[in-house]
C-alpha cells in the first residue's frame, strides 16, 4: 500500500473546541498531521481547516470517515487528484552580513519575494508559493545562514468545483 500526501479541506462549525476535536482525532487514532491552517470563511459560522496528511488508501478512507463522524464537521474534501491551487507563506530570517546583502536581494528579486524587515545583520524575507518554490528558496538561502523560519501551513482551494475527481 503506497503512502500518499493528501490535502484535506474541512469545513467545520466555527465554535470553541472544534479544532481540538479534529486534532484529538488525529492524535488519538495515530494519524499524522503534516500541516494545519485554520481560519473563518465568508460565513462567520463556518471555519475552514486545511490539513495535510500522509496515509495509504485504507487509512485515508478512515480519516475522512472519522472526520465526517464528528458532529461539528460539515464537509470534508480531499483535494488529491483534483485541480487545486496550493499556497504557503514563509517568513525567513536570514543572516545578512554586508558581503551577502546584494546576493540575498538578487534572490529575493528572482523569486519575487519581499524583504519585510532589515536589521544590522539580518533580513526577514516574506515568500509565498507552492511547496517546490519554498523548498528552492530555502535551499539557496541555507548556505548564507538561515536564523529562523516560520510557515503558515498549506492552504488550498479547488480551481473549479466541478473538476474534483
Amino acid at each position: 500500500m503506497t503512502i500518499e500526501k493528501h490535502v484535506l479541506s474541512i469545513l467545520v462549525d466555527n465554535k470553541p473546541g472544534v479544532l481540538s476535536r479534529i486534532v484529538g482525532l488525529f492524535s488519538g487514532r495515530g494519524y499524522n498531521i503534516e500541516s494545519l491552517a485554520v481560519a473563518e470563511t465568508m460565513d462567520p459560522l463556518v471555519s475552514r481547516i486545511t490539513l495535510v496528511t500522509k496515509a495509504d488508501a485504507p487509512v485515508i478512507e478512515q480519516i475522512e470517515k472519522q472526520l465526517n463522524k464528528l458532529i461539528n464537521v460539515i464537509k470534508v474534501n480531499d483535494f488529491t487528484g483534483a485541480e487545486y491551487v496550493q499556497r504557503e507563506m514563509v517568513l525567513i530570517k536570514v543572516t545578512a552580513k554586508s558581503e551577502h546583502r546584494a546576493e540575498i536581494l538578487r534572490m529575493v528579486d528572482i523569486f519575487r519575494c519581499k524583504v519585510v524587515d532589515v536589521g544590522i545583520e539580518h533580513y526577514i524575507i516574506e515568500t509565498t508559493g507552492d511547496q517546490s518554490k519554498i523548498d528552492a528558496i530555502l535551499k539557496l538561502l541555507k548556505p548564507i545562514g538561515i536564523k529562523e523560519i516560520v510557515k503558515t501551513g498549506i492552504i488550498a482551494l479547488l480551481r473549479d468545483q466541478y473538476t474534483k475527481k
Binding site: Q62, K65, Q66, N68, K69
Partner: peptide, 11 residues
C-alpha cells in the same frame, strides 16, 4: 449505520 465501521478492520 456507521460508515467508519465499514472497511475499518475487515475489507
Amino acid at each position: 449505520i456507521d460508515p467508519t465501521s465499514i472497511q475499518k478492520n475487515i475489507s
